[in-house]
């Protein structure tokens, strides 16, 4: 059975064979993976076993292997949803807040030129400020929030018109 996940902007396909072996569409050796009736997950290679931790919620799946964290997103047709926060690489002309928070500074206005790393907006969350930057060259099409507004990660905070 095939599963698709988005990780770090790329779609990855996993084939779970015989409900036990996972392969990845190339020559790599399959991973033998099992789950217990109560939902714990472990790898097995002969007598050698290793427990790993994974849990899913909505379109997100979180995995911990030896302390290294992975976050996968189930691809969805609804491109806009959750675009900012997840590993999903979205259209660079739509700029999202990295996390929900409050807009404390807006550094651009409609029509302003932008280049990569140009500071657009500062969002404050958890007592820290985060600078939202442009990822391309072009100009500002719309600024959708003002200072003091609460932003989420689903609505673009700034929209850009980027040079092709």
């Amino acid at each position: 059975m095939n599963f698709e996940f988005v990780y770090d902007g790329e779609t990855k396909t996993v084939d779970l064979k015989e409900n036990r072996f996972a392969t990845f569409g190339d020559d790599k050796a399959p991973v033998e993976i099992e789950s217990t009736p109560d939902g714990r997950i472990f790898l097995r290679n002969g007598g050698i076993i290793k427990e790993i931790h994974a849990v899913s919620n909505g379109d997100k799946t979180f995995v911990d292997i030896d302390g290294t964290l992975f976050e996968f997103t189930i691809p969805s047709d609804d491109v806009g949803a959750g675009g900012g926060a997840g590993g999903l690489e979205t259209d660079p002309s739509k700029v999202f807040a990295p996390m929900p928070g409050k807009v404390v500074k807006v550094m651009v206005a409609e029509g302003d030129p932008v280049e990569p790393k140009k500071h657009l907006v500062i969002v404050e969350a958890m007592k820290m400020e985060h600078i939202v930057v442009s990822k391309g060259t072009g100009k500002v099409k719309a600024v959708n929030f003002a200072v003091g507004d609460q932003v989420d990660t689903d609505t673009p905070i700034v929209e850009l018109e980027l040079d092709e």
């Binding site: 059975m1 599963f3 996940f5 990780y7 990855k12 996993v14 779970l16 996972a22 990845f24 991973v31 993976i33 789950s35 939902g39 997950i41 790898l43 790993i52 994974a54 849990v55 899913s56 799946t61 995995v63 292997i65 290294t68 992975f70 996968f72």
Partner: peptide, 9 residues
């Protein structure tokens, strides 16, 4: 391995 775990879960 993480992808395999994600598929299982």
């Amino acid at each position: 391995t993480a992808l395999a775990a994600a598929a299982v879960v």
